[in-house]
C-alpha cells in the first residue's frame, strides 16, 4: 500500500512523462531543422551532431521571411487596435444600459462567435472586389476586425460588468462627456482583458490561410502561414525545407507564449468558463 505522498510522486512522474511525449513532435521539429540531408538519410530519428543552420538560409529566402513576417505583425497589430477600440466602445453601453435594444444587439453580435466563416466568403469576396479592396492589407484588416468583433464585444461586455460603476459616475458629475468618460476612465481599466483579446486575435491572424489566399495576390503581401504554404506546397516531405520553415513560422508565437504563459492561461480560462 503506497502512502498518499508516494502516490503523488508516482502520478506526477507519470504526468511529466505524458507531457514529454506530447511535446516530442515539437522537439523533433527543432532537432530535424538543424540536421543535414545526409544525417537524416543515415539515421532518421537521430539528434543533430552539430548545430547546422545551412537549411535556414535557403528557407528564409524561399518563403520571403522578413517581408511576410513584417506583413503579419503589422496586420496583427492594426487589427488588435481596431478590434479593441470598436468593440470596447460598443461594450460600454452594452454593459451599462439595460433595455431591450441593448440586450438584443448584444445577443445579435455575440451570435457571430459560433458562425463558421465559410458561408459568407464568396459574397464577401465579390463585395470587397466592388469596393476595390482586393490585394490590399486594408481589406484584410477589415475582414479580421469584423471577424473578431463578436469575441471583443463578448469579452469587454462581461469584463465591464465586473468593474464598479462609481468612477464613471464621478466623472459624469464632474461634467465629463460620455466620450471623455470612455476614453479616460473606461479604456484604461480594460487593459487586462485587452491582453487576452489580443492573444486570440493574434492566433486567428497568424494561423489563417483562407483569407490571405482569397484576398491577396502578390507574394510580397503574404502573411507568414500563406508564405509557408506557398513555399512548401501540399504533400512536401523534404525535411531540410519542411522543418526549418516550421520553426521559423512558429517561433515568434511560441516564444511569445512561453514568456507570457501565466497571463495567457489565466485570461484564456477566465474568458472560457465565465460564459
Amino acid at each position: 500500500m503506497l502512502t498518499v505522498k508516494a502516490k503523488k510522486y508516482v502520478y506526477s512522474t507519470l504526468m511529466i512523462a505524458v507531457g514529454f511525449v506530447m511535446l516530442t513532435p515539437v522537439f523533433f521539429m527543432i532537432s530535424m531543422s538543424l540536421r543535414t540531408r545526409r544525417e537524416i538519410m543515415l539515421d532518421p530519428l537521430g539528434l543533430p551532431k552539430t548545430i547546422n543552420l545551412d537549411n535556414y538560409g535557403s528557407v528564409m529566402e524561399g518563403m520571403n521571411y522578413a517581408q511576410s513576417m513584417f506583413n503579419t505583425v503589422m496586420i496583427t497589430l492594426l487589427t488588435i487596435i481596431c478590434v479593441s477600440i470598436i468593440a470596447s466602445l460598443a461594450a460600454y453601453p452594452l454593459a451599462r444600459i439595460r433595455n431591450k435594444v441593448s440586450n438584443f444587439v448584444y445577443i445579435f453580435i455575440t451570435l457571430g462567435l459560433v458562425i463558421p466563416p465559410f458561408a459568407g466568403l464568396t459574397p464577401l469576396y465579390l463585395f470587397m472586389r466592388d469596393l476595390g479592396l482586393l490585394n490590399s492589407h486594408v481589406g484584410l484588416i477589415i475582414v479580421y476586425t469584423v471577424a473578431n468583433l463578436p469575441l471583443g464585444v463578448f469579452f469587454y461586455t462581461s469584463f465591464m460588468k465586473s468593474i464598479p460603476i462609481e468612477l464613471e459616475e464621478a466623472a459624469r458629475l464632474d461634467g465629463a462627456s460620455f466620450l471623455k468618460t470612455y476614453w479616460y476612465i473606461i479604456l484604461p481599466m480594460l487593459k487586462p482583458i485587452t491582453g487576452t483579446l489580443a492573444l486570440f486575435v493574434t492566433l486567428t491572424v497568424w494561423n489563417d490561410i483562407v483569407n490571405p489566399m482569397l484576398f491577396l495576390t502578390d507574394d510580397s503581401k503574404f502573411t507568414i502561414m500563406t508564405a509557408v504554404l506557398r513555399f512548401l506546397g501540399t504533400y512536401n516531405v523534404d525535411p531540410t525545407q519542411l522543418f526549418p520553415a516550421a520553426v521559423l513560422a512558429s517561433a515568434p508565437l511560441l516564444i511569445f507564449f512561453l514568456l507570457l504563459s501565466k497571463q495567457i492561461v489565466a485570461g484564456m480560462s477566465a474568458g472560457a468558463v465565465k460564459s
Binding site: P25, V26, F28, N207, V228, N236, V237, S250, L253
Partner: peptide
C-alpha cells in the same frame, strides 16, 4: 504548446 503551433505547421510536422 502544441495549440500554439498553427494548424498549417502541425499539419506539415505530422505529415512527415
Amino acid at each position: 504548446v502544441p495549440s500554439m503551433l498553427s494548424l498549417v505547421i502541425a499539419g506539415y510536422i505530422w505529415q512527415y
